[in-house]
């Protein structure tokens, strides 16, 4: 999830929770991470995110698609190298 910058002028006044989400997702952040930081259940956060998405205040990026049949070797190598640097 990433907040849209600048925020659309047409959007109405957001709820305090919505504002907290917008602050937290100034950079891309996972839904589970948002839920943990807000101390709210994932299911509740998802509903609020849908509101924000509909209002055009955030964008959603699906995770990297993983298929069992054709594994992405480049991706795996990248993860492997990154972990090796830890």
């Amino acid at each position: 999830m990433t907040a849209v910058d600048p925020q659309p002028e047409t959007a109405g006044r957001p709820q305090p929770e919505h504002l907290r989400i917008l602050r937290l997702c100034a950079g891309p952040v996972a839904v589970a991470e948002l839920a943990a930081r807000l101390d709210l259940p994932v299911s509740v956060v998802v509903i609020m995110l849908c509101d924000l998405l509909e209002a055009g205040r955030i964008t959603a990026h699906p995770p990297h698609p993983v298929t069992r049949t054709t594994p992405d070797l480049d991706l795996l190598q990248k993860v492997r190298e990154g972990l090796g640097r830890l």
Partner: peptide, 22 residues
């Protein structure tokens, strides 16, 4: 995502990192 602005989506996709999970 249905209804979202295509250009905004594209520019965001470029800056957003790819994600994988274990």
């Amino acid at each position: 995502m249905a209804g979202s602005d295509t250009t905004a989506q594209e520019s965001a996709d470029r800056s957003a990192p790819d994600t994988v999970k274990i």
